[in-house]
């Protein structure tokens, strides 16, 4: 039974990782791609690690998987934030469908 539950978590994780990668290919610019990549890959990888924890129980592997979940949750949004900010500052344009960019407007106000 525990084996089935653990496998189910790993399967869910892989599915969402797949959606994240699909978003990485399909969405237009770097910011939209980051959205898909951060959310789905964080959740997917956490799901896989949690499945490993359930399969292994409280031993060496299980503990490492749990700590891995905590570190992914802490670091993944921060790195996405850093990439998004760096690309905006180095002038990578947003996609054509973009409706508003208040960050750009405020930066221009500051420069003038």
């Amino acid at each position: 039974m525990i084996r089935v539950i653990g496998m189910a978590f790993i399967l869910i994780g892989i599915t969402f990782d797949f959606f994240g990668v699909l978003g990485l290919v399909r969405l237009p610019d770097v910011y939209n791609r980051l959205q898909a990549a951060t959310k789905c890959v964080t959740f997917g990888s956490a799901g896989i690690l949690f499945g490993v924890f359930i399969l292994q129980g409280f031993n060496n592997f299980g503990f490492k998987a749990l700590i891995g979940i905590a570190f992914i949750f802490l670091t993944s949004p921060v790195s996405a934030h850093a990439i998004a900010r760096a690309s905006h500052r180095s002038g990578i344009p947003l996609t054509k469908e973009t409706v508003v960019d208040q960050y750009q407007e405020d930066n221009e106000l500051k420069d003038n």
Partner: peptide
């Protein structure tokens, strides 16, 4: 909220029309 976010992304990337309207807000 995070589970909701993942289904939201899944809905967007699986939709053939890519229903996005991106922008940066404050």
């Amino acid at each position: 909220e995070m589970v909701k976010a993942n289904f939201h992304v899944a809905y967007i990337v699986l939709n053939p029309n890519l229903p996005i309207k991106p922008g940066i807000v404050k």
